[in-house]
Nucleic acid binder design. Sequence first.
DNA 1: ATCGGCTCGCGCAA
DNA 2: TGCGCGAAGCCGAT
Length: 456
Amino acid sequence: MKSQISGRLSILNEEPIRRGQYVLYWMQASQRTRFNPALEHAVKRANELKLPLLVAFGLMDNYPEANERHYAFMLQGLADVKGGLADRGIGFVIRHGSPPGVALELAEHAAMVVCDRGYLSHQKQWRDQVADEAGCCVEQVEGDVVVPIEEASDKSEFAARTLRPKVHRLLDQYLKPCRSPKVAVRREHWKMTSGIDLSDIPGALARLKIDRSVKQVAHFHGGEIEAQRRLRHFLKHSLNGYRDGRNEPAGEVTSTLSPYLHFRQISPVEIALRVRASHAPAQDKEAFLEELIVRRELAMNFVNFNPNYDSYDALPAWAQRTLKAHTADKRPYIYARRDLENAKTHDRFWNAAQRQMTATGYMHNYMRMYWGKKVLEWKRTPREAYEDLIYLNNKYFLDGRDPASWANVGWIFGLHDRPWQQRAIFGTIRYMNDSGLQRKFDMEAYVRKVDSIESY
DNA sequence: ATCGGCTCGCGCAA
DNA sequence: TGCGCGAAGCCGAT
């Protein structure tokens, strides 16, 4: 029942705008007040209807694959959201319950509902349910990508090279500032209860039924304020030299914005505009924008057009064929999941990468590739390797459980990649080894860096 | 240090 | 239908 109005905007049902006490922005994916097209669209609608705007977030127990590490980061971000909305005279309700349940409760008194767009299957289901049951008009604004996914392409793309020209054609159209209209009917305080006190995050965390096996990290503080600080730091200190420096595992030449992009605490459009406007060399800007836009949105394309995105079966046919042909090959090392999880392998560089992940919720980008390739080599079957990688990725990374998680793990197994020379275990899947790491990088510095992180 | 070969399928040119 | 080429590869030859 979805109809496209313009690039970012879709109407999700055929219900009318009706009499109501407010316009409801059901904020679920886009957890920010800056550069949030869904929020600004909701402000515009509220102004047109001469109604106040209410923003609501549904905080559920046991969110799929989330644990205390993820929840803590997200709640820190939602505290920023509350503050940012209060500054503009917009009310915010965060309520304990399922996201569609909370949205539907509050939609009862709404003239209409605005929502944002996550790409994972449960997020889609929640939106479908709200659109079906709200009884009023539900509009969706796709504000967490540069080019809306279906605008760029109408199918699952084979590789970056097939998506790239389609995205580049539309860049100028979509790399635009986000207008922020003044709120006409200010109303910050509402009678309905919030139930969650964001000024006491440890207390709020303690009351949730969640997996507490992975603790929060001091290394990353959640929220759009910290995201903005990191963006400024990156533009000032790291963008210059990004193309040649980004792969050095011990280096500091990365944005470290991926956790903030995952929780949508910062807009990729805003990042791209700031990068474009900076005085860094063109080659560095291009290399970064390729990562931020083409590669990131290729992951969204993959998830959007493959209902099987979270399964080994979503890998391309040539990759499954070649891996199957090599399943019986002798493995020099085989590790159980708990050996991997505890960083107990014979490989110091791999162990360091694993420890960086568990200790900080983050791993250097280049090491993520090496880390994944070794697990493929060290499990009895590629399916087991796939399962272990998704498990570890989503459990420990702050940016896990993202479309990029399934695309990146898939890449280890040939997704969006090309075949290479035949070899044992891998078949024609791209191989990586530690001599490559040592040839190209200062790996002792990387191990020292992880050691020092853990001891602080 | 640098270079070609490896190997598959997409998409464009013809 | 043919052909160029591709996220970070490795490996052996020069």
